[in-house]
């Protein structure tokens, strides 16, 4: 079976700085893939490159192929991209207020998404489909007439989700969709996202910094740091037997269940974009770094499961 999304050698640069370097990423049909990393790791830029929504003077190179689209997405002109976005590929952003049009009733916005791509025969059908979509995200029919500012953050994010799923996209990308929400609302929105993609057999690329959320939502995970994918594999594998020292440190630092009074930390700070060290991007914060780390570590393992580290953590038990 061919992949829904296939990213090869994606590199994103702004003037002389490299923000994302040589990222390979595939998402299979119906697969839920997580992309985790701290701020500045390049995970959002990766998503924006796929969508062709990079800011001006930020340039992407490499190859992005999407199933059902017969052209390369990198470098495609706006006319072609606007036929892909919202149809084959949809995105849920972190901040729903800026993703919605404040001057339009939400029902019209959802109907518009279908009318623009001509996936429904007419206005009446589009409105009926919009009501149906609202029902799927557990919002009442009356919400059709509401403006975004009349809704709460969680309700708005559900509208954005309904909009994104309106045309049954092959791939849904979510960039920190629940970071701005309360935990109980987050639980509902996460559940709706998973049910929405499962019902359509859409693939999901889920971007977040929250390891627990990724583990709950996704099947496979990629860990990014300093603009590179440092480790990838099935969620269970990566989170129970991390190989890259960054993944190991990140897991330890986010473990609040520990009975120790002090948390395990990663020394230092995430460097600002473009100021990561050469060679292994993590070497200036890594306790295991040696001279060999000044050369870039090669990828160990298969395309979907592996890591890039000169001094990987030992595997004690192998499943």
């Amino acid at each position: 079976m061919s992949d829904v999304l296939s990213v090869r050698g994606l590199t994103v640069t702004v003037r002389d700085k490299t923000l994302v370097s040589d990222v390979d990423l595939t998402v299979g049909p119906g697969e839920r893939v997580g992309l985790i990393g701290e701020s500045g790791s390049g995970k959002s830029l990766t998503a924006l490159s796929v969508l062709g929504l990079l800011p001006e003077d930020v340039v992407a190179a490499g190859s992005v192929q999407l199933t059902g689209v017969d052209h390369e997405l990198i470098g495609a002109d706006e006319r072609r991209m606007s036929r892909v976005r919202g149809r084959h590929l949809a995105m849920v952003f972190q901040e729903p207020m800026t993703a919605l049009n404040p001057t339009m009733r939400v029902g019209d916005q959802i109907a518009e998404a279908m009318l623009i791509h001509r996936t429904v025969p007419g206005r009446r059908a589009a409105r009926a489909a919009a009501v149906e979509l609202l029902g799927r995200v557990q919002l009442p029919r009356e919400t059709m007439r509401a403006y975004p500012h009349q809704l709460s953050g969680g309700q708005r994010q559900r509208i954005v989700l309904a909009l994104a799923l309106a045309n049954d996209p092959a791939l849904l990308i979510c960039d920190e969709p629940t970071t701005a929400l309360d935990v109980t609302v987050q639980a509902l929105v996460l559940d709706l996202i998973v049910k929405g993609v499962v019902a359509r057999s859409s693939a999901l690329l889920f971007i977040t910094h929250d390891l627990a959320v990724v583990a709950t939502v996704c099947e496979r995970v990629l860990v990014m740091y300093g603009g590179r994918v440092v480790e990838s594999g099935p969620v269970e594998e990566v989170f129970t037997r991390p190989r890259h020292r960054y993944t190991e440190g990140l897991l330890a630092a986010s473990d609040l269940e520990t009975n120790e009074r002090r948390l395990t930390t990663i020394p230092g700070n995430v460097p600002p974009a473009g100021q990561f060290p050469s060679g292994c991007v993590f070497r200036n914060r890594c306790r295991h770094a040696t001279d060999v780390c000044s050369t870039a570590p090669s990828w160990t393992g298969t395309a979907s499961t592996g890591f890039a580290c000169h001094h990987p953590a030992e595997v004690t038990t192998h499943a």
């Binding site: 987050q186 639980a187 996460l190 583990a215 709950t216 969620v235 269970e236 989170f239 897991l251």
Partner: peptide
């Protein structure tokens, strides 16, 4: 409603 790694790895879903 709090997602935790521990629960997720033991099979908890959304």
């Amino acid at each position: 409603a709090i997602p935790t790694l521990h629960r997720a790895l033991s099979g908890a879903t959304t």
